[in-house]
């Protein structure tokens, strides 16, 4: 039961890094892929409407964490507070930018760019901390900074592949040049595997099974989670099947 709970936790985090990571990478590249407002409209169209369903994997991951491993969640989140603050602030800023850019385009683009970088660097620092000796303390600068930079690069590469798959026009051409001429498919498949594996590997060293919630809680949670998982994936697959193609400029936003 504890092991299944740990695997579920890993799955939700992997889902977030894979799907949410693509949006983060896209946001990091916004000014590079889109050189003027019209081009940036094309890039921002790539967020819609999937980012809503992508970022929610993190909400679910944190929920599974607190439900199945409440003791560990508290120790880890409070210990890593200084790393998580930029991550969450980055999420808020990035989302605000995505929602508002149709009303205030320049400010919206700046928010998306800054927020995405904060998210990527923050997650990188979190990964460094999890891999170092004391999981529940931020990694020192000498370890944290280079890891954060490397992870940010990975996010960016992932976003580049995503852009080559979803964008149109000039931004698409730029992304395809960077991601390779095979229309991004291959590099995206590769970065997807790496992105999904990253949180799992980073969390593999955590004493999850020793710190799981009590028996009754897991007996309630684990079967429910397993039962609904196919439905969740089916809903997401439906969304991707419907909207996962090239993002047309008119898809850019609801408002």
């Amino acid at each position: 039961m504890e092991l299944t709970a740990a695997l579920l936790l890993g799955l939700f985090f992997a889902g977030y890094f894979l799907l949410g990571g693509a949006d983060i990478g896209l946001g990091m590249l916004l000014p590079y892929l889109g050189r003027d407002r019209a081009e940036r409209d094309l890039v921002a169209a790539g967020f819609w409407p999937m980012f809503l369903a992508n970022e929610v994997w993190l909400v679910a991951a944190a929920g599974v964490f607190i439900g199945c491993f409440p003791h560990l969640e508290g120790e880890l989140f409070s210990g890593l507070l200084l790393v998580l603050v930029p991550v969450i602030a980055g999420w808020m800023i990035r989302d605000a930018g995505i929602w508002w850019r149709r009303q205030v385009p320049s400010a919206g683009d700046a928010l998306i760019f800054v927020g995405s970088w904060l998210l990527a660097l923050g997650w990188g620092w979190a990964v460094a901390s999890l891999l170092s000796e004391h999981h529940d303390a931020p990694a020192p600068f000498a370890v944290g900074a280079p890891t954060a930079a490397a992870v940010a690069l990975l996010f960016m590469t992932h976003g580049m592949g995503y852009a080559a798959l979803r964008l149109t026009g000039r931004p698409f051409q730029r992304a395809r040049m960077m991601a390779g001429h095979r229309a991004g498919g291959n590099s995206f498949a590769l970065t997807s595997v790496v992105m999904a594996a990253m949180p799992v590997l980073a969390g593999a060293g955590l004493p999850l099974t020793e710190h799981a919630a009590g028996e009754e809680s897991l007996r309630l949670l684990v079967p429910v989670l397993i039962a609904v998982l196919p439905l969740l994936i089916a809903a997401q697959a439906w969304l991707w099947r419907t909207f996962g193609g090239r993002a047309e400029p008119t898809d850019r936003a609801y408002f």
Binding site: L52, V56, A60, P70, V228, L239
Partner: peptide
């Protein structure tokens, strides 16, 4: 924590996707 977990997975995840 159990109810928070169920909220995120059973409710919010579905709500956001839909």
């Amino acid at each position: 924590g159990a109810s928070l977990a169920l909220e995120t997975v059973l409710a919010f995840f579905v709500e956001s996707t839909f």
